[in-house]
Amino acid sequence: MIPLLWGILHTLLVVAAAPWATGLTRRVKARLQGRRGASCWQPYRDLWRLLQKDSVIADSASWLFHITPYVVFVAVWLAATILPTLTTDMIMTPAADLIALVALLGVARFFTALAGLDAGTAFGGLGASREMFIASLGEPAMLMVTFSLSVLAHTTSPAHLVEFVLAGHVGLEVSVGLAMGALLMVALAESGRIPIDNPATHLELTMVHEAMVLEYSGRHLALMEAAAMMRQLLFLSLIICLFLPWGIARPGDAAPWLLVGLAAWIAKVAALSVVLAAYESWIAKMRLFRIADFLGGALLLALLATIFLYVSEAL
């Protein structure tokens, strides 16, 4: 019973907390740029307002355009639900390991890109093409991070990885550092943050994600936006879960541990959001074709992480 309860609570938590994390990043970024910035709760108001508006759909769009926001939102939500953030003792955790998690995010991306192509506009196609280009390098890098972690811990399940790290089986390994570097680079790309994509841009030629959802409005746009926020939170949680799992409760821990887990998670998400905002303010956006080097670098970094395991393993 307990795993089911935690599972449901966690499902609600991730969807409720996602706009807050985005709002926090925006606010810190605004402060760093010398503006006052909107409050952390602004994204909730934005989403609410979008929900109230009518949805306008292009004449040329097909039924795929209608269902895509739901598919995308549910796929990302599902992925975020499965990833342990507070406790590993959740009913859904064994349903998907990291490979399946990557694939779930792939579902969301696949349908977003198709929706971008559906209305038959130049911008939609541009966004879809670029998004798939970025993903075609980012997704392998994530799989390779999974590979190196699974060589280390003999598991691809995030819950067991957490337990492996918390049990103290892994020290400050070079490979872990490299894998974390690779995952950070991928996270920037996959959640559409600055050196790759600019979430704040509406300048036509630099848009990637924004270009794909250009034709959406009203509740559909609200779902797409919420999915994007949740995706960002998911990546922060993924980094926390794989590399900074301290504080996550384990099966058998008493219920108060869950509160500790919650507090630790909030603190870590907040810290990472601040770092993200600082990094975004510090760095400039990249040219599109430079992204291939950036993500190719992440892929090679993850490969190096695996290779380095062999040395330390042989010690």
Binding site: G171, L172, V174, G177, S312
Partner: peptide
């Protein structure tokens, strides 16, 4: 996998940097 002490691990991490 054999455990290497923290000192060496940190040294290696810096080397990796």
């Amino acid at each position: 996998m054999a455990h290497t002490p923290f000192a060496y691990n940190l040294a290696h991490l810096i080397g990796a940097t």
